[in-house]
Design a protein around this nucleic acid. Structure first.
Length: 476
DNA sequence: ATGTAC
């Protein structure tokens, strides 16, 4: 898009002042090249978000932002319930609490090298992947309720994982305020056989090598060294989150008139935080967050089982687990006053800085680990939250590379089989039930994650700690 | 993202 319409605040921060119905400015974090390449829709959607009731400070876009449903993906917006603030299903996204966690294997690349194929086989056999994939766990009414209210803590009680995992998960693995009664029978039905499955699209389980360290002090606290092997899991709340998102999107669109909210775009459907519908959505959304946390916890257990068959006695410790699609109540300073705000992050990572009270003690000096998943065959990054991020983006950072091309465009340009062969030639093993899915996820269908992460670092949203390169990728 | 159209 045309960069001339923006006021450039600094090298990586671009602002459009509030005009017309906008209540706050729109701010995009990008360098000139990323901004030029960004779809004009990102700005239009951001300007629309800025018109919503009760929005505070600014509507933000992260450097990986692209066109989404209503809100841009890579969008951050915070609302004040005391000023008529709203919650929007489109502002959270369909795959509620989709996120990434990274496990440390204690292995070095030397130890993995001769077992690569065996580990790929074991992981592909053990972790169900693909559209409609089902697991071995089947939830009844009671266990469904336990999962929806207990999240990863529930999964742990069922024997999936280790007690020490919990402190490395946002909300200690259990999102408070989940209200299972607002999760419809249909959402439950879709989920009952899908626990512990990866799903499809950009979801994956990836074995990675630590390729580079940028901040040695922080990397030491995180326990990362060059040539260490880690395993990252990227997935969300599967059919349940999608069903909840769809249902509330419809309900919110129909309720807009009742709440006298005039929407510049129907896709921005929302409800006042203090309204019954707003509260029902928050309760259901938090249950979906628990579903995603439980799902990643169960997949972690399956990953540990698979690794054990290849490396007997191995221990996989959790570095951290971040969610990308959420609305959370957080304390932030607005005009010198501490306020409880409802922060929507859609395709954006929470990135609390050093000293934040919600961080476990071991990260109090480093800030929160921020896990950035790259596209298939490209790098991923570990960053850490900053103090500056609090003022810049409600302590938020980018979540990945961000698509540069649509899925259908990608399938016209690339063939899955060819991509798998090309990546194999570079020493990267891809396992997937869907070659079409692989084509849709072609590395060049995404922005360059290294550029995106550099901008996030220079903008002060989060700081680079380590670069990870793929070795094995189980693709949904 | 998604029982890839309800």
């Amino acid at each position: 898009m045309d960069t001339r319409q923006f006021i450039q605040r600094d090298e990586t921060c671009w602002e459009i002042k509030a005009t017309g119905r906008m209540r706050v400015p729109a701010v995009i974090y990008a360098d000139a090249q990323l901004l030029e390449a960004m779809d004009r829709k990102v700005y239009e959607q951001l300007a629309n978000v800025a018109t919503l009731p009760g929005i505070v400070d600014a509507a933000y876009a992260m450097p990986d932002a692209h066109w989404g449903y209503g809100f841009p993906i890579g969008g951050v917006a915070a609302f004040d319930p005391d000023q008529g603030g709203v919650v929007s299903a489109g502002g959270v996204g369909f795959d509620i609490s989709c996120g990434v966690r990274t496990l440390q294997t204690g292995l070095t690349m030397d130890q993995l090298q001769t077992h690569k194929q065996a580990l790929a086989d074991a992981l592909y056999r053990t972790v169900p992947a693909g559209v409609g994939s089902r697991g071995r766990i089947h939830l009844n009414h009671d266990s469904m309720h336990g999962m929806l209210t207990g999240g990863a803590q529930w999964a742990l009680e069922q024997g999936f994982g280790e007690e020490q995992d919990l402190e490395r998960i946002e909300e200690r693995g259990c999102m408070a305020g989940a209200e299972a009664r607002y999760v419809s029978p249909k959402a439950r039905e879709r989920q009952k056989d899908e626990m512990g499955t990866l799903g499809s699209g950009n979801h994956y389980l990836e074995v990675q090598r630590v390729a580079k360290i940028f901040d040695h002090e922080v990397a030491k606290v995180f326990g990362l060294r060059v040539d260490d092997v880690v395993i990252s899991i990227h997935c969300g709340s599967r059919g349940l989150g999608h069903q909840i998102g769809s249902e509330f999107l419809t309900d919110m669109a129909m309720a807009a008139a009742k709440y006298q909210i005039s929407l510049p775009d129907r896709e921005l459907a929302c409800a006042p935080l203090n309204s019954p519908l707003g509260k029902q959505y928050l309760g259901a959304m938090r249950a979906a967050i628990n579903c995603a946390l439980a799902n990643r916890q169960i997949i972690t257990h399956l990953t540990r089982q698979a690794a054990e068959t290849v490396f007997p006695g191995i221990h996989l410790g959790l570095l951290y687990d971040v969610s990308h699609n959420t609305c959370k109540v957080e304390q932030h300073m607005i005009d010198g006053q501490k306020k409880s705000l409802y922060v929507h992050r859609k395709g954006a990572t929470r990135a609390f800085g050093p000293g934040h009270p919600d961080l476990p003690e071991q990260f109090s000096e480093t800030g929160q680990p921020v896990l950035i998943g790259g596209s298939m065959g490209t790098s991923s990054y570990v960053l850490c939250g900053t103090k500056d991020g609090e003022q810049r983006s409600f302590s938020s950072a980018c979540h990945g590379a961000g698509r540069a091309m649509s899925r259908s465009q990608a399938t016209k340009r690339w063939q899955g089989r060819t991509l798998v062969d090309e990546l194999a030639a570079r020493g990267i093993i891809i396992r997937s039930p869907s070659m079409r899915g692989v084509a849709e996820e072609a590395p060049l269908a995404y922005k360059d994650v290294s550029v995106v992460v550099d901008v996030a670092d220079r903008a002060g949203l989060a700081r680079k700690v380590a670069k990870l390169e793929p070795v094995i990728c189980i693709k949904g």
